[in-house]
Computed example of a mutant assay.
Amino acid sequence: MEKSSMKILVTGANGFIGKNLITELKNRGYNDIFEYSRDMEISLLDTYCQKCEFVFHLAGVNRPQNQEEFMEGNFGFTSILLDLLKKHNNKATVMMSSSTQAALNNPYGRSKKAGEDLMISYSKETGAKVLVYRFTNVFGKWCRPNYNSVVATFCHNIANDLPIKVNDPDASMNLVYIDDVIVELINALKGKENRNGNFCEVSNTHTITLGEIAELIKSFKDSRKTLNVPNMANKFEKKLYSTYTSYLPIDQFSYPLKMNVDNRGSFTEIIRTMDRGQFSINIVKPGIIKGNHWHHTKNEKFLVLSGKGLIRFRKIGTEEIIDYYVSGDKMEVVDIPVGYTHNVINTGVTDLVIFMWANEPFNPEEPDTYFLEV
Results as ranks from 00 to 15, higher is better:
Gly29Lys: 12
Ser111Thr: 03
Asp46Gly: 10
Met95Ala: 10
Lys113Arg: 11
Thr126His: 01
Ile8Ser: 00
Leu104Val: 10
Lys112Ala: 06
Ser4Lys: 10
Gln65Ala: 11
Met6Ile: 15
Phe75Arg: 01
Ile33Lys: 01
Leu45Val: 06
Ile42Leu: 15
Ser97Asp: 05
Ile42Met: 13
Cys49Trp: 05
Ser97Pro: 08
Arg28Glu: 14
Val10His: 02
Gly76Ile: 05
Cys49Ala: 14
Lys19Glu: 15
Phe16Asn: 04
Lys26Glu: 13
Phe56Glu: 00
Leu25Pro: 06
Asp39Leu: 12
Arg38His: 15
Thr78Phe: 00
Met40Val: 13
Met40Cys: 11
Leu58Gly: 01
Lys91Ala: 07
Ile17Glu: 02
Ala59Val: 07
Phe75Val: 01
Ser97Gly: 08
Leu25Asp: 05
Phe34Asn: 04
Ser5Pro: 04
Asn89Trp: 03
Glu116His: 09
Asn20Ser: 15
Leu9Ala: 09
Tyr30Cys: 02
Ala103Cys: 11
Glu68Asp: 14
Phe70Gly: 00
Gly15Cys: 14
Asn74Trp: 00
Ser123Ala: 13
Asp83Asn: 14
Glu125Val: 06
Ser4Arg: 06
Cys52Trp: 02
Ser5Ala: 15
His57Trp: 11
Gln65Pro: 05
Ala103Glu: 09
Asn31Ile: 12
Ala59Ser: 15
Thr23Gln: 11
Ser123Tyr: 01
Ser111Gly: 02
Asp46Leu: 07
Leu25Thr: 03
Gly73Gln: 10
Ser37Met: 13
Thr23Val: 05
Thr47Ile: 09
Ile8His: 05
Glu53Gln: 15
Ile42Tyr: 06
Glu35Met: 10
Ser79Cys: 09
Ala103Leu: 13
Gly12Ser: 14
Thr100Tyr: 10
Ser43Glu: 15
Arg110Gly: 01
Asn27Asp: 12
Leu9Asp: 04
Val94His: 04
Val94Gly: 00
Gly60Met: 02
Gly76Arg: 03
Met40Gly: 06
Lys26Phe: 03
Met95Gly: 05
Met40Phe: 15
Glu35Gln: 10
Asn89Thr: 11
Phe75Asp: 00
Ala102Phe: 04
Ile80Ala: 08
Cys52Tyr: 01
Glu72Ile: 03
Leu58Val: 09
Met96Tyr: 09
Val55Lys: 03
Tyr36Gly: 13
Asp39Lys: 15
Asn105Lys: 09
Gly29Met: 08
Ser37Glu: 10
Gly115Tyr: 01
Glu72Gln: 09
Ile17Phe: 12
Glu2Ile: 11
Ala59Gly: 12
Thr126Ser: 01
Thr23Pro: 03
Thr100Arg: 13
Ile120Val: 08
Ser99Leu: 08
Gly12Thr: 07
Pro107Lys: 02
Ser4His: 11
Pro107Met: 03
